[in-house]
Lab assay of single mutants.
Amino acid sequence: MISLIAALAVDRVIGMENAMPWNLPADLAWFKRNTLNKPVIMGRHTWESIGRPLPGRKNIILSSQPGTDDRVTWVKSVDEAIAACGDVPEIMVIGGGRVYEQFLPKAQKLYLTHIDAEVEGDTHFPDYEPDDWESVFSEFHDADAQNSHSYCFEILERR
């Protein structure tokens, strides 16, 4: 099963200049909980913004210009990325925008964090048809001392 995991502000903004323009430790914990011990696929820009392999996960970098870091697996196509994951129950696609666009048609599940923030962004989550998805989990949280904005975790499964 292919799943996408993303944090989205208003207007589906997911990033600005290779960074997330908010401070939500709870979302980072949600991300870790849902990706640990699963292969993660990301684009080169996302890889560069993280700066290191995510521990406890097979890191697969999709790029037309593969790098030389041998701590991760470099691939040039969506099919190659899927094959590099091996026989696993769930593959997690973690961004960025172009990689989400490439995998959305193949995805069966979306793990979304909806952030109540209007922020400037240069990267967006692809538009998706809500009628194609069923919400199977939703959990709202107010902003607090650690988390700069209110947010809602949601899991959607393709109908």
Rank of each mutant, 00 (worst) to 15 (best):
F103R: 02
D131T: 04
N59L: 03
Q108N: 10
Q108T: 11
P25I: 13
K109I: 08
P126A: 14
L8S: 02
L36C: 02
D122G: 01
K38E: 07
R52P: 11
V13R: 01
V10Q: 01
L28S: 01
D122W: 01
V10S: 05
D142Y: 10
A81Y: 02
I82L: 05
W74E: 10
I91S: 15
D116G: 15
Y111L: 09
G121A: 01
W30P: 01
E80Y: 11
R52G: 12
R33F: 11
L112F: 12
A83C: 10
P55E: 08
N23M: 10
V75S: 07
C85Y: 15
Y128P: 07
N23F: 03
I14T: 03
M20E: 01
R52K: 08
R52A: 11
V75H: 07
D127L: 13
P89I: 05
A83Q: 07
E90N: 06
V72Q: 11
H141I: 12
L156A: 11
D69R: 09
I82H: 06
I5Q: 00
C85P: 11
D116V: 15
I14G: 00
E154K: 15
P55V: 08
D69C: 13
L36T: 08
T35V: 01
S63V: 10
D142K: 11
F31C: 01
C152T: 15
R98H: 15
R33Y: 12
W74Y: 12
N147Q: 05
P66D: 02
E80K: 04
I14Q: 00
L28N: 01
E80Q: 05
E48K: 13
V72D: 12
Y111H: 07
M42H: 12
V78Q: 11
P55L: 09
A26W: 02
P66Y: 11
Y151I: 10
R98Y: 15
H114S: 15
W74R: 05
Y151C: 14
T73Q: 08
D11F: 00
E118M: 12
S148W: 01
F153Y: 04
K38R: 12
V40Y: 01
P21T: 02
P53Q: 11
P21S: 07
P126R: 11
V13Y: 00
R159P: 14
I50C: 11
E120D: 15
A19N: 13
I94M: 04
E129Q: 13
M42T: 02
R44F: 04
H141V: 09
P105G: 09
N147R: 03
L24Y: 02
A81K: 03
S49W: 01
A81V: 14
I5C: 01
E118I: 12
M42L: 09
D131P: 09
A6W: 00
S49F: 03
N37Y: 12
P21W: 00
L156M: 15
V78T: 11
W47V: 15
V72I: 12
K76H: 03
K76G: 06
R12E: 14
L156G: 07
G121E: 00
D70N: 05
V88Q: 09
K58S: 08
E48S: 13
R98F: 15
S3C: 00
W30V: 04
L24A: 14
D116T: 15
K32L: 08
R98L: 02
L104G: 03
A9L: 06
F125C: 08
N34V: 05
P55R: 06
Y151M: 06
R12D: 10
V119A: 04
F137A: 11
R12S: 08
S77P: 01
K58V: 09
L62P: 02
P21G: 03
D132K: 12
A26V: 02
D144G: 11
N59D: 11
H45Q: 07
T68Q: 13
H114V: 15
F137C: 15
F140P: 14
K76A: 07
S138D: 09
R52S: 09
A145S: 08
I115R: 00
T123H: 03
T73S: 09
E120V: 05
L110V: 04
I61A: 03
R44A: 11
Q146C: 11
P130R: 14
V10P: 12
S77R: 14
D132P: 12
F137I: 15
V99R: 03
E120L: 13
D122T: 02
D127P: 12
V99S: 11
F125V: 01
P55I: 07
I82P: 03
R158I: 05
A81L: 12
W30H: 15
S135V: 06
V88D: 13
E17G: 09
K38P: 01
P130F: 12
N59K: 08
I61C: 11
G56A: 05
M42S: 10
E139W: 05
Q65K: 05
I41A: 15
L54M: 10
D116M: 15
T68I: 08
P66H: 12
P89A: 10
G86D: 07
P130A: 12
I94L: 14
F137S: 14
A19F: 14
D69Y: 10
I60R: 00
F31G: 01
L28Q: 00
V88T: 12
V75I: 14
M16D: 02
R159F: 13
G86C: 08
V88L: 12
E134F: 10
D132W: 10
H114F: 14
E17S: 04
Q108G: 10
D70L: 10
S49G: 03
F103A: 15
R33L: 05
N18M: 06
L28V: 00
P126E: 09
K38G: 09
E48F: 13
S77F: 15
A7T: 03
S77D: 14
G121N: 00
A143F: 09
D132Y: 14
I60K: 01
V40A: 14
P53M: 05
R159V: 11
Y100N: 02
P25M: 09
E17K: 01
S63Y: 03
V78A: 13
D69L: 09
I60L: 12
P25R: 05
N18W: 05
R71K: 06
T68Y: 09
L4C: 01
E101K: 09
G51W: 10
Y128G: 05
H124C: 15
S63W: 05
T46V: 00
P25F: 14
Y128L: 06
Q102L: 15
G86W: 07
V78R: 13
C85M: 15
Q102P: 06
E101G: 12
P89V: 09
N59T: 09
Q108E: 08
L36E: 05
T68S: 11
I82V: 09
